[in-house]
Amino acid sequence: MNYTYILRCEDGTLYTGWTNNLEKRVADHNAGKGAKYTRTRRPVELVYVEEFSTKEEAMSREYAIKRLKRTDKLKLLHAKNA
């Protein structure tokens, strides 16, 4: 499985990424081994996940989410958690 995910960083910002091993990737972010963006914004919390069968689908969705405005990302989180 492949996943597109959103993390909420300690400073309240949102980070979007994709992976094929969600638990390991979140642990990597929290250990400072993830993306450069999250290294100084730890700890991070997983707040949103979508599952895909292919890497390409997950990467395409990551790209689409990264293009959204923050308000639209927050609406996405709210809709998924409602």
Rank of each mutant, 00 (worst) to 15 (best):
Y3E: 06
T4H: 05
Y5H: 05
I6H: 01
I6W: 00
L7E: 04
L7S: 03
R8V: 08
C9D: 07
E10K: 15
D11S: 05
T13D: 12
T13L: 11
Y15C: 04
T16C: 15
G17E: 07
T19M: 01
T19W: 00
L22W: 00
E23I: 08
E23P: 01
E23G: 07
V26G: 02
A27C: 03
A27Q: 14
H29P: 06
A31W: 03
G34S: 02
G34Y: 00
G34H: 01
A35S: 15
Y37W: 12
Y37I: 09
T38Q: 03
T38F: 03
R39I: 08
T40A: 12
P43Y: 02
V44Q: 09
V44A: 14
E45F: 10
E45Q: 11
V47E: 07
Y48Q: 05
V49P: 08
E50I: 01
F52N: 03
E56T: 11
E56Q: 13
A58N: 03
M59G: 06
S60L: 10
E62R: 11
E62I: 08
K66V: 10
K69H: 13
T71H: 14
T71K: 13
D72N: 10
D72C: 08
D72I: 07
K73D: 05
L74I: 15
L74Q: 10
L76D: 07
L77N: 05
A79G: 06
N81I: 06
N81K: 15
